[in-house]
């Protein structure tokens, strides 16, 4: 496990991004938890699936059992108090992230380019059809692959919509322009809830993928740097300054021939 000398650590997530990423996790958790307390206060009209005509549906979304396990009933006042206080933290953290990502030019790693859609299909095939990986090679990628660029950007965009729909239902008179844009109070409420479900699904996939991506990748969100084996780097990506890297392994050269890049630090 200990890093050896033919490895190098490359900055992947800057300090500000890491803080905002990790702050977002508990804040969003509190938002969803308090939001569900509000959602469940309306016991007569939960979003349901099934036949609505005869006032009967197949199952409530969520079923009562979920609600009871989480102890979500009759906590409306506290739900609102938490939600409307921590909503500011979620909003400010998201705004700060958007501004930082723009100003630091980190967006170049993150936003989809015109290959991302096609890439993301290839990446998904590669990931899901694990029995035929050699038939589904990965397309070239930078820090993030096409699927990551698309899904991370989409989730950030949805975060913005979540905040806007939140204000649309929080202040439907004072912010009535927003409410109108989202198709009125009930639509805004529906979108707000649907995005929450997408957040939960994203969380599950994200955690599974981080698990597959391994310890070094996880560590990059903790320390900022991702450890790379220099030998692997040459085989992984042919164009990755091959001569430069192979020279660093030779006896005649100073092993720290990466000086030029190190001077960035």
């Amino acid at each position: 496990m200990a890093p050896s000398e033919n490895q190098i650590a490359v900055l992947k997530h800057r300090r500000a991004s890491r803080w905002m990423h990790w702050i977002n996790f508990p804040v969003l958790t509190i938002m969803i938890w308090s939001g569900l307390r509000i959602y469940w206060a309306d016991v007569r009209d939960p979003f349901g699936f099934g036949v609505g005509l005869v006032g009967w549906h197949w199952f409530d979304f969520f079923p009562d059992s979920v609600n009871e396990t989480l102890g979500l009933r009759a906590r409306l006042a506290k739900g609102m108090a938490w939600h409307f206080t921590f909503g500011w933290l979620f909003t400010i953290n998201g705004l700060a992230y958007a501004i930082y990502t723009w100003r630091s030019k980190e967006w170049r790693h993150l936003l989809p380019d015109r290959h991302s859609l096609r890439d993301s299909i290839k990446v998904t095939k590669h990931d899901l059809m694990f029995w035929a990986r050699s038939k589904n090679p990965l397309p070239p990628q930078g820090r993030y692959n096409g699927a990551q660029r698309l899904s991370y950007s989409a989730i950030l965009f949805l975060g913005g919509i979540e905040v806007l729909t939140g204000f649309a239902i929080y202040k439907p008179t004072q912010a009535n322009i927003l409410t109108t844009i989202f198709g009125g109070y009930e639509w805004a409420r529906g979108i707000h809830f649907a995005i929450t479900i997408i957040f939960l699904l994203f969380f599950v996939v994200h955690v599974v993928q981080v698990g597959f991506a391994g310890w070094r990748n996880f560590m990059s969100m903790v320390t900022g740097y991702e450890l790379i084996d220099l030998d692997d780097a040459t085989t992984d990506s042919v164009s990755f300054d091959e001569t430069h890297i192979s020279s660093s392994g030779s006896d005649t050269t100073d092993p720290d021939s990466n000086d030029e890049e190190l001077s960035h630090v």
Binding site: V10, L11, L227, D256, H264
Partner: peptide
């Protein structure tokens, strides 16, 4: 992206 040595890491 800046790089650092394994020991710094």
């Amino acid at each position: 992206s800046p790089r650092i040595s394994p020991s710094d890491y």
